[in-house]
Design a protein around this nucleic acid. Structure first.
Length: 213
DNA sequence: TACCAGGAGAAAA
DNA sequence: TTTTCTCATGGT
């Protein structure tokens, strides 16, 4: 089974996911940091806190006290470290000229710069590139590794960049498709993993869009 | 009660 | 260079 075929089957099975759930590109980027190793429902609470305090822009976040920011982020877990990471990101984002300027950057240059921010790793950077900057970058997360390794489509021990290259090389460079594909993987993992712990044998189970792949 | 969730960076080996 | 540890809340 090819990566393209699996995408088609996931899309046919679950329909469009219409990600990322946010009102603005900046909110996408904040969410990308807050969702690190954290359930999205907890991230929503933290973002709601930021909205309540009208604190959803880089200058305002930087103007807030670190202590207050950490408290607003508390529901998303790791709140002290995430407050610092969010501040690091906002400092870079503001100094770089925010969206109007950054939108003109080359994708590779933008990715390199994002990875230079302490607290922004490969997945977080690619979340931002795909869902905020609308660049054709494939997001690799724990679900992607787990499901596609289980399907025998990834070499054991493949690193983040190797897996990203595998997907980007096998698929058309299409922002909308990459957007849906990652969202569909997350959707499928949540549905399948709710039946079997740690994604058990979900990809071979009844009801799976690609049984026995 | 124990485990897990849309990771990343620092420290230790 | 690779592995292990730390960060932490909320749901199941």
């Amino acid at each position: 089974m090819t990566l393209s075929r699996i995408y088609e089957q996931l899309f046919q099975h679950y329909g469009p996911q219409k990600w990322w759930p946010a009102d603005s590109a900046f909110e996408v980027m904040v969410g990308a940091i807050l969702t690190q190793n954290t359930a999205w429902t907890n991230v929503e609470r933290a973002i709601d806190n930021l909205k309540t305090h009208q604190c959803l822009s880089a200058p305002v976040i930087l103007a807030a006290s670190p202590e207050a920011l950490a408290q607003w982020l508390r529901p998303s877990g790791y709140f002290n470290i995430k407050a610092q990471r969010l501040r690091n990101f906002c400092q870079w984002y503001r100094d770089a000229g925010e969206l109007p300027i950054l939108s003109q950057w080359d994708t590779r240059e933008l990715r390199r710069a994002l990875l230079g921010v302490n607290g922004v790793g490969p997945e977080t950077a690619d979340d931002m590139l795909l869902y905020a900057f609308e660049r054709p970058v494939f997001v690799v997360d724990a679900y992607t590794r787990r499901i596609f390794s289980r399907l025998g489509l990834l070499d054991d021990g493949s690193g983040y960049e190797a897996i990203r290259a595998r997907f980007e090389g096998a698929l058309p460079s299409d922002v909308d498709m990459f957007n849906e594909y990652h969202a569909l993987i997350v959707r499928h993992a949540k549905v399948a993993c709710s039946k079997t712990p740690r994604c058990g044998d979900c990809c071979l189970s009844a009801g799976c869009p690609f049984p026995g792949a």
